[in-house]
Simulated scan of single mutants.
Amino acid sequence: MPIDTPDLAGLILARLPAVTRRPLVLGIAGAQGSGKSTLAARIAKARSCPVLSLDDLYLDGTARQRLAETVHPLLRTRGVPGTHDVARGRAVIEALGDGPLALPRFDKARDEPGPDELVNPADLLVFEGWCLGARPQEEAALGTPVNALERDRDPDGIWRRYVDAQLAGPYRALFARIDMLVFLAAPGFEIVADWRVEQERNAGGPMTDDTVRGFVLHYQRITEDMLRSAPDWADITVRLDAQRRPIAIEERRAPEPG
C-alpha cells in the first residue's frame, strides 16, 4: 500500500505530544482499507511498541446475539459502536504502562475473540480503528436513512440511534484516552467499498465482492460524518487519493482566542 511510507510515520512520530501519563496513546482512524493497520505497524516497528486495534475489542458472538435479540438484529454484525468491549479497552490501556499485559486479539475467521497476546509495559501504544474519535450526530440527521441498509433493515432508526448513543456514552470515554489522533481521510465514501474488496481479495477472505459491498453499508453513516467533521477535531488529517497516497497533511489549528 502506498500509505506504508517511512516519511509519513516519521512525520507523525515527530509530532507526538509531551505527556506524563503512560502509555501515550497514538490513535489512527480512517475508513476500511485506508491503510490504518499498515501505518500502525510501521510506527510500532520504529518505536518497538504494541498495537491495539479497535477490532480486537469485539464482543463475542453470544454477546452480539444477545444485543440482536434485545436491541436490534443488525447488532449481530460486528463493527459499529456497541459491538465492542469498551470497558476492557479502557482497562488494558491504563494497565499497559505498569507491567506485562495480555492484549486482546480477535479472530475474524472464527468471528470470535482469539488468544490474548502478552506484551511488555510500554510508554507508547498505537491504537487504530475505523471510528476512533467519531462524534454522535444530531437527531435530525439520524432520522433520514443514508442507504438501502438503513432504509430497509432499520426503518424506525432503532439501530442507528443505539449506535449513536454508544458514541455519546462509553465510546466517548474510550476516545478521550487518545493523546494524539491521526485521521486517514479517503477521497469519499464511494472508494471505501473498492478498497475493502481489494483487502478481502488480497487476504483470500471468504466474502464475495457483493457481500463486501453490502457489509460496508453498516459503516457509511459514521464514515461520511467523519469525512466531513474529523478535520475539525483530529490532530492530524492525512488526505489520501484513490491509491491511498497522501496528497495533503493538515494539522488542526488551535481555536481563535475569545
Rank of each mutant, 00 (worst) to 15 (best):
R78T: 04
P23I: 11
A40K: 02
P155K: 03
R66L: 12
S53K: 13
E256H: 15
A168I: 13
D116Q: 10
L124Y: 01
A63P: 04
L118T: 13
R172G: 02
R47T: 09
F183V: 05
A122P: 07
T211Y: 10
E256A: 15
A185W: 06
R245L: 02
P50D: 00
R110Y: 05
V216F: 10
P121G: 08
K45Q: 13
E139H: 03
W195C: 01
A87V: 11
P6F: 11
K45V: 12
Q166Y: 03
F175W: 12
V86P: 03
A173S: 10
G205F: 10
D116S: 14
R78C: 01
A230W: 10
P121M: 06
I158K: 10
G204W: 08
E190G: 13
N202F: 12
L101S: 08
L184W: 00
Y162K: 03
P115G: 03
V146I: 04
D56T: 07
G188Q: 13
I236D: 00
D111Q: 07
L101N: 07
A176R: 15
A254K: 14
L149T: 09
L8S: 01
T223F: 06
V212P: 05
P6S: 12
I3D: 07
R66M: 12
R239W: 04
G82Q: 02
Q220H: 12
A186N: 04
F106N: 02
P257Y: 10
E190H: 14
D156T: 14
A168T: 12
L26V: 06
I178Q: 08
G33M: 12
V192K: 06
S34R: 04
E256S: 15
T208S: 14
E251Y: 09
A141T: 05
E138T: 11
S34F: 02
T144D: 09
D56C: 06
L125M: 08
S229T: 15
G27L: 02
A168S: 15
R22G: 04
A230M: 15
R15P: 02
S53N: 11
R228S: 08
V182R: 06
R151W: 12
A186S: 10
R21I: 11
G205Y: 11
D194M: 10
I3T: 13
T20S: 15
P246Q: 06
E150P: 02
R21M: 09
L103R: 12
L67K: 07
A185V: 14
P104H: 02
G114T: 07
G97L: 05
E251D: 10
A193W: 07
T83M: 05
T70V: 14
